[in-house]
Structures are given as C-alpha cells and as structure tokens.
C-alpha cells in the first residue's frame, strides 16, 4: 500500500505537532509530574486551565501563571483578561505577581471588553516570537471559544514557539485542540509555624494530554524562589530515625508479639 503510506507521510508533514522534539518541552521541575508527562509540556502550544468551580478561580489563575513563568523563562508576558473577570475575582495586583515570582515590569496587561477581544489579543500576542508566554482569561462559555478558535490559536503558537495558556472560569471542560487540558482545584497549603497558610498549593487534574499521558491527579506546591513546582511534604510527620541504633535488628531476631 504505497499510496497509504505516502498519504500518512504527507499528513505527518502538515501536522505541526509532529515536529515536537524534547527541546520543545518545558518541565514542571518536579519529577513526579515530569516523568509521566515525558519531560514536561509542549512549548509553542495551547494549554487550557479550567477552574473546577467558580470559587477556586484564583487558583486557576495562579496555576496558569506558574505555567507561563515556567515556559516564559524571564521573557515578557502578555496577560489578556476579559473585563468581567476583573469585576468578579478582582484585578491583577503587581505586588502579588512580584511575590508570586513574576516580574510585573515585564507583563503587558490587555483588558478587552469581551471574549472575542481576548482571543484576538491572544492571537496577536502569540504570533510575536519575542514574548515568553501568553495568558488569556475568559469567563463562561462564549460561542467564539470553540474548537476552531482553539485550533487557530494552537497553530499560531506552534508557528512562533510561544506558549499560550488559556484560563477558563465558570465553564465545563469542552473539546478543543489544546495540547493539554487541566482542571484546577484549591488545595490546603502546608502550614507554617503558628498555623499560618503556606506557599500556593494546587490540586491539579490532567484531563487530556495530546502526547498520550493518561488522566491523572497531582497535588503541587509552587516554590516562588526557584520558580518551580514541588511535591508537598507528606501530610503526617514521619517517625524520626533513631540516631544511636539501627531501625530493626539485622540479625533476623523475630519480633516479639505483644498481647
């Protein structure tokens, strides 16, 4: 069947994803998640982040910013945000972004009136190869954010190599051409001394991964100082190892059964 294989080759040449090499991935910085994903997520692709509930949308924005910071590697970011998102969940705060690890001086914020404007701004920004990553936030399930729009954004991202993170709040996960789709839920943080809330923590669920990782759950913390993800420490304190003797008798003496 020489015709069929020729056709397959032709399709593979048309498909931009086939050009994916390990160099085009950005890692999470946490082996527990990078391993299953095969090294990280594709740079120059569209990734979707859904807030599982409206009330945890701040977590979705935070996780999206984490991905953008990992993918951007210090280059400028563009953050396109629908006006309504500001009303509903508060406006972006420069100091907060600085404390999150971002550089507010290198972020351009675009605030279009509606979802169409957000998608347009994202499309315009993602074609500029000098940008590190683009964040786009839309509210609800507008008609314009369909399969075709995601396909177009994905192609634009593949063309320039710029990563696009689309954050969606108040929407159920929909089919799209995204390279990966995540659902984010708030997670309780590791408490600091005196019961203070710790670093940002997320409960993320991988819904779809184009390169083949099956759906999975992770609990992640964001380490601002190293700009990387980390697995949270075990929830219960571990029994300390005795310093002056071995843990168990090495000579094979059986344990004495009590009671």
């Amino acid at each position: 069947m020489p015709d069929l294989s020729a056709l397959k080759r032709a399709i593979a040449a048309l498909e931009p994803d086939s050009a994916l090499r390990p160099a085009d991935l950005f890692a999470f910085g946490e082996p527990g998640i990078d391993g299953p994903l095969g090294g990280g997520l594709a740079r120059g692709a569209l990734h979707e982040v859904y807030a599982r509930r409206v009330s945890v949308s701040a977590s979705a924005a935070g996780f999206g910013l984490c991905l953008a910071l990992r993918a951007g590697e210090g280059r400028p970011l563009v953050w396109a945000r629908q006006d309504f998102v500001d009303v509903e969940t508060g406006a972006l705060h420069g100091e907060g972004i600085a404390e999150f690890g971002g550089d507010p001086d290198r972020i351009v914020v675009v605030r279009p009136r509606d979802a169409t404007g957000v998608l347009r701004a994202a499309h315009e920004a993602v074609r500029c190869a000098a940008i590190g990553a683009v964040l786009a936030e839309i509210w609800g399930e507008p008609k314009v954010a369909d399969l075709r729009a995601s396909r177009r954004l994905g192609l634009a991202a593949a063309g320039s190599g710029v990563t696009l993170v689309l954050i969606r709040r108040g929407a159920a996960p929909q089919p799209s051409a995204a390279a990966s789709r995540w659902s984010v839920e708030a997670a309780s943080s590791t408490p600091l001394e005196a019961g203070a809330p710790g670093p940002p923590a997320f409960d993320v669920e991988l819904l779809r991964h184009r390169a083949g990782c099956p759906p999975r759950h992770w609990r992640l913390e964001w380490d601002r100082d190293s700009l990387s993800f980390a697995a949270p420490p075990l929830p219960r304190p571990v029994v300390p190892l005795p310093a002056d003797r071995t843990v168990a008798a090495a000579d094979g003496t059986p344990w004495r059964l009590a009671g």
Partner: peptide, 21 residues
C-alpha cells in the same frame, strides 16, 4: 531590582494575586 519589592526568600506570598476594588 525594579520598583516592586523583591519578596523575602522562603516566605509565602504576603500579597494576593488579585485585588478587589
């Protein structure tokens, strides 16, 4: 480095990402 304060290392963020006005 910039007009914004550099966060202290090992501290969790003390300012929120989003602010209501």
């Amino acid at each position: 480095v910039s007009g914004f304060l550099q966060p202290a290392p090992l501290e969790p963020p003390t300012r929120p990402l989003q602010v209501f006005d």
